[in-house]
Simulated assay, not measured.
Amino acid sequence: MERIKAIIEDDPASVNLDLDHDPVAQVCSPDKFGRVLGMSVGISKTSLASSAPAKKQLCQQKQQHSMLEERFGSLEPQMVTITKILLETREEVAGQQSHRRIVADSSATSNARDPTCSQSHGDSSRGMELCELINMHREVVAKGRATRANIILDATLDTPIDIYNVRVCLVIDLDRSALFGSKRTFGELHLPTAVKWPKDFTRFL
């Protein structure tokens, strides 16, 4: 036994040699008569050789299983962290959506109170701004939108003046608010509509 241990210590790879050349065979001589030293009766070299592939495959499967367990163990803390991040992100998104709904509801309420604020974005893209139309008493009679730089000289009047083409969306007093240069009132118009209004009586907001 000591000699076998000494051979293995000198050459550890010798344990992988076949049964005719491994450390046991080197000390005790090769097996004979269909028997294998250290094995029970009925086990031969042939049976051991035929079972070797199955044993090798079983050993590989055990190694793979062990590697998978180690890998899963290292991934588990990461999965916990990712789960926490996902939950926090979901809560943050839900909060943002709730805030957007509140802002949208507030905006809709504001637009319902003042129709001039609910104009399409097309007007804004053409440079139209919110403005107020005032009368001779400096009272606001209507609200609408006009292009600040688009001033027109109306030469059809006795005294030519600068005017704006205003898209009126809200009238303060339909019956008593007279149109500029006309006997008609805003109440006779179908809003929204465009009207001419003097530059000096147009106030941009």
Rank of each mutant, 00 (worst) to 15 (best):
A149F: 10
D158P: 04
Q60A: 03
E91H: 15
I163R: 02
L189I: 07
S98G: 05
C169N: 14
D154R: 01
I82F: 01
L157G: 01
A49N: 14
F204C: 03
R35I: 06
R35G: 10
G95Q: 09
G181Q: 01
A94T: 04
K45T: 12
S107E: 12
A104L: 13
D105K: 09
T159L: 03
L174E: 12
R113L: 15
Y164P: 01
K183T: 07
E91D: 13
A112G: 04
L205D: 08
D114V: 12
E132Q: 15
H137A: 14
S118T: 09
E9I: 12
S47E: 15
L48P: 04
D20C: 08
C59N: 03
A13S: 15
D105L: 05
R113Q: 09
F72S: 09
I151C: 07
Q61N: 03
S124T: 11
M136L: 09
H137T: 10
N150Q: 11
I151V: 15
Q26K: 08
S74T: 05
I152R: 00
G122P: 02
D158T: 06
A146V: 06
R148F: 15
G42P: 14
N150R: 14
S177N: 08
T193W: 07
L189S: 04
I43N: 05
S110C: 10
P192M: 01
T156P: 03
K56Y: 06
V93M: 14
K199M: 13
L174S: 10
R71P: 00
T46V: 13
L17H: 07
A52R: 11
L86I: 08
T116K: 09
F204E: 05
K45V: 12
A155R: 06
